[in-house]
Nucleic acid binder design. Structure first.
Length: 713
DNA sequence: CTTGAGTTGGTTTTT
DNA sequence: CCAACTCAAG
């Protein structure tokens, strides 16, 4: 992604590459060639005689890990260094020391949906009301505790107020449920690993002994658990190299602790700190705006943005009436860019929430602009995919009740709620798993003969799947899909099931990809790998399509042309952040905008609308406070541009009122978007008359009378 | 036991 | 607005 970085390393980059022994913090601003520094450093370590086996590099996403592997390899660093995300590293450690971690190696990794079901179950089991104690809230609380490495028992011991006591019980039960199901959630992966490293001398000796050099990227987004893991890993050799940028910390809400990077120097008193302040990516105007914006944050480590590129085009800030007009306007500008020779790969559109992609997609489809929505987990969240995966999970982990309950009657096979309840009662009474109980269906007195037969057939199905679970994964996925009856039920659904069928085909090809890539295919490994799949992993930078993604997903990327849409109060900063009373949250939203802005190399286009439909309701919106912090002039002609070839009804019927009469200077007028204003100029040239209005918002606009829909007041 | 209509409630960002 | 849930009819 660092294509803009010059060939030669700069002095400070070289310094960061060549520093070998001892703790090192690289404070790297956006576009400073940080990735290059890390890969060069890996190569330099190996040049200096370090065995790749002794190097551990930790990245933020699988994508970044894959890229780093390739880049290090290209620099001549032979394979063998461990390069992965925190979570993948944890899975490997836990699998190796499964006994000590208290799981079986085929453990399931619970994603958000599985976690929700389980916590809800836990709340019910504890006889609490799920409306009073919302599952999502409880899950957040549990997650926060795990991120701080507070396990259920110690938390329970220390719980003194009412809510803590409730939470403690739910937390205990939740952990119990996961243990029964041989499952770990994302936070468990980190917590278990931290406990293994800190509590088991031999595990620690093994890993801290092996990794002589540990490199951690995006250190500003590490949470406390990750911090403790890192600390334990480098305890022996003390060769930690952390890189990051406090100004790009955007994951506070999921436990990231900015103090990890802010306090690095007090944490490691003999640390060397190198700042990479030169920016090789963006034009000076973009950097100036980014710098002015981020200067509004109080909690930061001061760092400059030093431009190295020649000046480029102005940043464009434009307004549209509504999100449809905004999307159309962007489509039009993309067409203009491609006409001028821009590649679609070099164009990206960022937004705050995923739901905003839809309007853009519709506009791009109409304009026939190829695009890709970067949202990887979406695919794995599809019903049909989750169903197939549930079958696969049960093959490696029959105790995974979340998976089992999901598909026991999918497709419908006459095993409804009543039957399942009876099986569960039997299972609990005999202290066996539901899957075991199904196998013993003939002993369950409460069941009819026909139901017993159906349960036996179900158990038999998995008997056969287990036998087929050898070698490559793809053929097994196919077998499961066909023999489970899922295939038939989708075929029976006709046109409705067509898309689902195609998705499953895609899943099978993805599995085949895995088979090709893996040294040794195993279903366990495959399932754990895709559980850790991230949104950005689905991004294909050479696809020849415009990239659409959230601001969060944009981290680490760069594009020649960047559009940031919906920069409005309530959206950015987002209303759910309580940014009114919580300064920290407001600052995080500002950093998010900062990240978006600094992805742009040459053209940056920021837009907001006057009206936006949110959850089906048309709302009046106001420009984000952040816009005024950029120190840029707002483009005043942006509305005209929007409307030029607009085919919206609302503009057409405005023609009558406009043609009715001329406007005198000083006339008070109302515009449906801008509100009240006073006419400062009027050029009467018949049909194409223009009127200049100074609006009460402070903006002055020149408008085509026939489109402006001005109302005399 | 299954299905579909109707209701309710929650509602950002993601490994 | 949408997903998850409830409940009654078949």
């Amino acid at each position: 992604m660092d294509s803009s970085t010059p060939q030669q390393l700069t002095p400070s980059q070289k310094q960061a590459v060549c520093h070998i022994e001892g703790p090192l913090l690289v404070l790297a601003g956006p576009g400073s060639g940080k990735t290059r520094v890390i890969t060069h450093r890996i190569a330099a370590l190996i040049d200096a005689g370090v065995r790749p086996y002794n190097i551990c590099a930790i990245t933020f996403t699988n994508k970044a890990a894959e890229e780093m592997r390739q880049r290090a390899f290209a620099l001549g660093a032979s394979a063998g260094a461990h390069i992965s995300t925190f979570h993948s590293l944890c899975v490997r450690i836990i699998r190796r020391y499964a006994d000590k971690a208290g799981v079986k190696s085929g453990f399931s990794i619970y994603d958000q949906a599985d976690q929700r079901r389980s916590i809800k179950q836990a709340i019910k089991d504890c006889r609490f009301d799920t409306t009073q104690f919302q599952p999502a809230r409880m899950l957040d609380a549990v997650s926060a505790l795990k991120n701080r490495l507070i396990d259920a028992e110690p938390f329970n011991d220390g719980a003194d107020d009412f809510f803590s006591k409730v939470l403690a019980q739910v937390y205990l039960r939740y952990q119990q449920l996961l243990a029964e199901r041989n499952a770990l959630d994302f936070d468990d992966l980190l917590m278990k690993t931290a406990f293994l490293l800190e509590g088991c001398a031999d595990v620690n000796a093994d890993l801290a002994g092996r990794f002589r050099f540990v490199l951690i990227d995006e250190y500003q987004d590490t949470n406390h658990a990750q911090y403790r893991i890192a600390k334990a890993l480098v305890a022996r050799h003390k060769n930690i190299c952390a890189t990051g940028d406090p100004d790009q910390s955007i994951y506070r809400w999921r436990g990231a602790d900015i103090h990890n990077i802010i306090d690095f120097e007090s944490d490691w008193p003999d640390a060397t700190v190198i700042k990479l302040e030169e920016n090789f990516r963006s034009t000076p105007n973009i950097l100036a705006a980014a710098d002015k914006l981020i200067a509004n944050n109080r909690k930061r480590k001061l760092k400059r943005l030093v431009p190295t590129r020649p000046p480029g085009p102005d940043i464009v800030i434009s307004a549209s009436d509504n999100e449809t007009a905004e999307a159309r306007s962007i489509a039009r500008q993309i067409e203009k860019l491609t006409d001028q020779g821009a590649a679609l790969n070099d164009i990206a559109v960022f937004y705050r929430v995923n739901s905003m992609s839809r309007t853009l997609e519709e506009a791009f489809i109409r304009a026939k602009i190829p695009y890709q929505v970067v949202r990887g987990v979406e695919f794995y969240n599809r019903k049909e995919i989750r169903d197939v995966l549930a079958y696969l999970k049960i093959i490696v982990n029959p105790e995974d009740e979340a998976a089992l309950l999901r598909i026991i009657n999918t497709p419908a096979r006459g095993l409804g709620k009543v039957t399942i309840d009876r099986v569960i009662v039997y299972a609990r009474a005999n202290r066996i798993s539901i899957f075991e109980a199904i196998k013993k269906a003939q002993h369950i007195a409460t069941l009819s003969t026909s139901v017993r037969g159906r349960l036996a057939a179900f158990a038999d199905l998995f008997e056969r799947f287990a036998k087929a679970n050898v070698g490559p994964v793809a053929p097994l996925v196919k077998t499961v899909f066909e023999h489970s009856g899922l295939s038939d039920s989708l075929l029976a659904a006709g046109a409705e099931g067509k898309e689902a069928l195609e998705n499953v085909d895609e899943l099978i090809s993805a599995a085949a990809d895995y088979d090709r890539r893996a040294d040794e295919s195993s279903l366990t490994d495959y399932l754990q790998e895709i559980s850790l799949f991230s949104d950005i992993d689905s991004y294909d930078p050479v696809a020849g399509r415009v990239a659409l993604m959230t601001l969060h997903a944009a981290k680490g990327l760069e594009f020649d042309n960047v559009f940031i849409v919906g920069v409005e109060e309530g959206l950015l900063p987002h209303e759910r952040t309580n940014s009114h009373d919580d300064l920290d949250e407001l600052e995080e939203e500002r950093r998010l905008f900062f990240v978006g802005i600094t992805r742009a190399k040459t053209n940056l286009h920021i837009s907001y609308t006057q009206y936006r439909t949110i959850r089906g309701q048309l709302l009046r919106t106001i420009p984000s406070q952040f816009l005024f912090e950029l120190g840029c002039r707002f483009q005043e002609d942006s509305f005209d541009d929007d409307r030029e070839d607009s085919d919206d009804r609302e503009y057409e019927d405005s023609a009558e009122s406009a043609s009715a009469a001329g406007f005198a200077v000083g006339q008070l007028v109302r515009h449906r978007s801008f509100g009240l204003g006073r006419v400062t100029d009027f050029v009467d040239v018949g049909e194409n008359s223009t009127v200049t209005v100074k609006f009460n918002t402070g903006q002055t606009k020149s408008l085509m009378l026939k489109y402006a829909n001005l109302e005399k007041v």
